[in-house]
Amino acid sequence: MRVSDTMLFTNSLQDSRRSRAAVLDSQQKLSSGLRVTAPSEDTSAYIKAKRLDDALKTSEAYLENIARAQSNLQTSEGVLGEANNILSRVKELAVQMANGVHEANGRAAAALEVVELRGTLIQIGNTKIGEEYLFAGNLTDTVPFDSAGVYHGDSNQRMVEVGSGLKVATNISGDTVFNAAGGVDVFAMLSDLETQLNNNDPDAIAALLDDVDIAINQVISGRSDLGNYINTAQVAESVVNRLNEDLSTEKSRLIDTDIMDSSSKMALNSQALEASLAAISRVMNISLINRL
């Protein structure tokens, strides 16, 4: 083979250029931490990673939804706990006052307490988080219970997505707790109780005791529903978190730099570059010109 001088120079140039490009490439991958930054670098990995990224974005929304749902549900559950206490106190009063030993003025005092408790209960029914009434069903901008205890919300439950195809309720409507179909209208019952207390009628008061129990059960079952929803939300949260981890790991596997791999490649490429530079300097020094 004939070797011309231009060949010698261009080949050397090309070799060192290639080695340098390889060193730069592995250096970039190491410093950016990314193996793939554009579809052309690894089309299928890039597009899979994009899908995972989309799923991660949706997961973020799920996690926010779960947090909001939990806050709603826990507040609802908390205030229904209060309602439970109030109705227990009502039951205590009713049981006491159904007993003949009490005088009219004792019953009148009890009636005043019942009025006050009823007012607190209406306030509980009108609990707000931010701008939204918790117990108004979908009509979150409407005061659910007026002072007469009449319900103005609707009986819808709002569901939010907390996972792909997984929804959890974020509320229970006020009527299922305080005015259930086939159950007791709690506020009407309390008004009755007040009336009978003022009427000083122990028998009529005793007759209301069953309704008080039913009312307490309505609240308890509302709380237990809420408890179930909170559990569902918690389960959903751990599912989404685990999914997020899997998605991130998979995404990283697809497009992140393999540090060990890139470091060893970088070391290898640097050595190759040095070797080729050494070879070039050796070859460049050999010429007949130096000997003649």
Partner: peptide
């Protein structure tokens, strides 16, 4: 297919839209 930092590409922007809609579910008002 712009990478993050340069700006969202249409693919990520679509995912952001779905995500924003899912967020609104929990408080539509």
């Amino acid at each position: 297919a712009a990478e993050d930092g340069v700006g969202l590409d249409p693919s990520s922007a679509l995912a952001e839209l779905f995500s924003a809609m899912a967020r609104l579910e929990s408080s539509p008002s």
